[in-house]
Design a binder for these strands. Structure first.
Lengths: 269, 269
DNA sequence: TCACCCTCTGACACTGTGTCAGAGTCAAGC
DNA sequence: GCTTGACTCTGACACAGTGTCAGAGGGTGA
C-alpha cells in the first residue's frame, strides 16, 4: 500500500488532485484509515491512475473521464466521446492557429514602426434589418458627401412623421456601372410610404467592422485602413459595405461623428 | 449616449461582460446615473471596446488588456507582451496538435477492433537516483527470469543489514554484445559496500512508462506493447529501460506483481 | 522529548462567463 | 393614470482544476 505522497510521486500528479479525485469518486483510495483518515493506495490502482492521466492529456474533463472509465462502457460510446473530443480539439487547434497568425501580424506591424494599427478592427456577424431608404447614384466618390446628408434628411422627413423616434441611420454603398450607388435611410419596421423604398438588408455572418470617430471627411481613410486589414487577415469583401451612424447630429458640428463601418467578408480560400 | 444593451449589441458582447469590465475598471461607462445606477456609454467608447474585443480574440486576459490599453504604454512593452503571448499561443497550438494526433490514433485503434490499448502509457520525466546493485549478463532473454530474483535477494542481504528498510527495487536492462546486461539492485543513499556497486542512474526528462500487473511472466508482452506505443506516438527509445518493482513480495506468489516499466525516449524528429 | 516531515480538513483564490432571483425603471399603449 | 413588457440594477452561485494557506494531528528518527 502506498501513501498519498508516494502514489502521487509515482503517478506524477499532486496530492491535491488525488484528494480532489477521491472526493469526486474518480479515484478512491483502496483504503482509508478510519482513525486518522490517511489514504492508502494499492499499487494496482496505478493502472487506473495512468488511464486517468492519459485521458487528461487528451483534454477530457473529470466528468468525461469518469464515464470513460465506468464499467459498462462499450466501444460505441467510447468512439462517440473521442469523436466529440476530436472536434473540440480541432477547434482549439484552429483558434490557436488564427491567434498565432494575428499575433505575428501585429508584431510585424510594430517592427515596421506602425505601433498599433490606427483603426481597431473586429469581426462580427451582422443581423438582417429592413430599411426605409432612398437610393441615389453618383459618379465620383467626392460627390457623396454632399448627397448623403440631404438624403437622410429627406427620408427622415417622410417617415419621421408617422414614426416618432427614428432608428439607426444606415447607408449602404455598392459600386454600379460608372459610379457608386448609395442606399440611404433608417432601420424601419413600419408600413411602406410614398417617396421611400422598403429595402431588406440581408444578414451577413462574417463582417469586419470598425468605428470612425471625429471628422466625417476622414472616413475615407478609415475605410482604406479597414480594407487593408481585411486583406492582411486573409479575407476579401463579399458584399456592399455599410455605414451605421451612431452619432451624427450635434447641430452642424462635423467633428463629433461616430460611424460604424461594416464590410461583409469571406475567407480567401 | 447608449444604454448598456445597445452598447453590448453594437460591440457584440454581453451585458454581463460590460458590467464585469466596469467593476474591474477596464471599461467604465462614460456616465452612471446616480439615482438608478443605469450605465450610459458614449459612442466614442466603442473604440476602446473594439480594442478590448480584438485583444480578447488574441487570448489576452483582462489584466493584460488593461496594461495594453493603459496610457503610458510604448512600443517596447507592447512588443514584449505580444512576444510572450506568441510563445503561449505557440504552446497551445502544439498541445492541440499533439492531442489531435493522439485522439485520432485512438480512434483508429478502435476502428481496427482494438477497443483500448491493453496497457495505458503515460509520459513523464524520471528523476535521478543512486543504486546499490549488481550487474549480471545473460545471453538470452528467457534466462533473465531465473537470474533477477536471486540477484535481488543477494543485494538485499548485503545492504539490508546496515539499512533497515530497503527502498525501491529497480532493474536496468541494456543490450550488450551478445546478450543482455542487467543491473539489479535498490535505490540506496548510503555508503559503498563490499559485493555491490554504487551505480548512478541519470535523470531522463522524457520517458514513457506503464504498469504491469499480475504474473511476472507476462511482463514481456507489456514491454512489447509499451514499445509499440512509443513508436506509434512518434518517439524512439533513447536509453536503457528500467523496471521498478512496486510490489513483488507476497511470499512466493507470482501473480501479484506490480511493476512500473520505464523507457526513456526521444522524439523522432 | 524534540524536530521535522507527512497528512488531514476546510477554505479561499483564480478566470470569465452563464444564470438566477428579486427589485426597480422606463416607455408605450390604453 | 395604470398596465404591461422590456430593460436594468445588484448580488450571488456556479463551473473546472488546480494552487495555496492555515491549523491541527500523526509518525518517525535522533
Amino acid at each position: 500500500m502506498l501513501s498519498i505522497g508516494a502514489f502521487a510521486q509515482i503517478g506524477q500528479v499532486t496530492h491535491r488532485m488525488l484528494r480532489h479525485w477521491d472526493q469526486t469518486g474518480l479515484l478512491v483510495p483502496a483504503h482509508t484509515d478510519p482513525f486518522n483518515s490517511y489514504r492508502s493506495y494499492d499499487p494496482q490502482q496505478l493502472e487506473r491512475l495512468h488511464r486517468i492521466v492519459a485521458l487528461r492529456q487528451l483534454g477530457f474533463g473529470i466528468e468525461d473521464i469518469s464515464s470513460l472509465l465506468a464499467d459498462g462502457i462499450d466501444a460505441e460510446q467510447l468512439m462517440v466521446m473521442l469523436q466529440r473530443r476530436r472536434a473540440e480539439v480541432e477547434e482549439e487547434h484552429r483558434t490557436a492557429a488564427a491567434r498565432l497568425a494575428d499575433v505575428e501580424r501585429r508584431l510585424h506591424l510594430i517592427e515596421r514602426e506602425r505601433p498599433m494599427s490606427s483603426v481597431e478592427v473586429i469581426k462580427k456577424p451582422l443581423s438582417a434589418a429592413q430599411l426605409a431608404a432612398r437610393t441615389v447614384k453618383v459618379n465620383e466618390q467626392p460627390e457623396l458627401i454632399n448627397v448623403v446628408g440631404p438624403t437622410f434628411d429627406a427620408v427622415a422627413e417622410i417617415i419621421g412623421g408617422t414614426c416618432g423616434a427614428l432608428e439607426t441611420p444606415i447607408a449602404v454603398y455598392s459600386s454600379a456601372e460608372e459610379g457608386i450607388e448609395a442606399t440611404i435611410g433608417y432601420v424601419y419596421s413600419g408600413q411602406a410610404q410614398e417617396g421611400v423604398d422598403l429595402i431588406p438588408l440581408p444578414a451577413e455572418n462574417e463582417a469586419f467592422v470598425t468605428v470612425h470617430l471625429g471628422e466625417i471627411q476622414g472616413i475615407g481613410s478609415s475605410w482604406q485602413a479597414l480594407h487593408e486589414e481585411i486583406l492582411a487577415r486573409g479575407y476579401e469583401p463579399s458584399g456592399p459595405c455599410r455605414e451605421l451612424y451612431l452619432r451624427a447630429d450635434e447641430a452642424g458640428r462635423t467633428d463629433q461623428f461616430v460611424v460604424e463601418l461594416q464590410q461583409p467578408v469571406r475567407s480567401i480560400s
